[in-house]
């Protein structure tokens, strides 16, 4: 509702203020940010340097999430985590620390895990975002998800999406991980309930099943 309203009312402007917390973060994918209007996209492409200012009003951008291109209207201070949760209602991604120290907000950018709370939604660009909601394909669980269920690797479940993201990435990229590998893959994932032993077991079990 709210998004739509902002969308229709917001015309891309030049010289908009970018929030200071994102300044200097590096516009790694600046040239490829997809915007709804070409005019702005061209402007943006012409000056893809760190320190470029835009905002504070919302801007409409496009983002490919779980294989579907979505259009959303976001303020420049919006993180990827907030865009997913608050704008696209993909609330599987959790925000726990909001400063890159718990991995509850882990998503993939072109297949690589990132902390979405630490990333400006404007830095996503053409990269494809995969969230926990996109891990099961056509209703079929990933072996890691299946193993998490079998080995009781979730308790309250709040860290679980982030844990699953870390473990799926490991299992998809390492055909024969050992315990040490699983520990390394989840070393940034905070879990207060203490699911770690079952997470380790589940992931090792899943890796056997994916060979």
């Amino acid at each position: 509702m709210e998004d739509k309203k902002q969308e229709s009312g917001s015309q891309p402007k030049k010289a908009i203020t970018r929030r200071s917390f994102l300044r200097g973060a590096g516009l790694s994918t600046a040239g490829s940010v997809l915007l709804t209007t070409n005019a702005f996209a061209i402007d943006y492409n012409e000056y893809p340097v760190a320190g470029e200012e835009f905002g504070p009003d919302a801007i409409t951008i496009k983002m490919k999430v779980n294989g579907i291109t979505k259009s959303l209207s976001v303020e420049p201070r919006t993180t990827l985590a907030s865009a997913l949760r608050d704008h696209l209602e993909l609330t599987g991604t959790k925000v726990v620390c909001d400063r890159g120290s718990c991995s509850a907000c882990t998503v993939y950018l072109d297949g690589e895990p990132v902390n979405s709370c630490m990333l400006s939604v404007f830095d996503v660009g053409e990269k494809e975002v995969t969230t926990i909601e996109g891990i099961a394909k056509d209703g079929e669980l990933h072996p890691v998800q299946q193993a998490f269920i079998e080995h009781d690797a979730s308790q309250c479940g709040y860290c679980t999406p982030g844990m699953v993201m870390s473990c799926v990435h490991l299992v998809d990229n390492n055909t024969n991980p050992n315990l040490e590998d699983v520990k390394k893959a989840t070393r940034g994932n905070l879990c207060r309930c203490g699911t770690h032993p079952h997470v380790f077991k589940a992931t090792l079990d899943a890796s056997k099943k994916t060979i």
Binding site: T91, Q145, I149, S154, V164
Partner: peptide
Amino acid sequence: VTRIDALDKVTGKAKF
């Protein structure tokens, strides 16, 4: 017995 709400938790569907 596996947790009856585990599926929602591992797929991100559980609404907190």
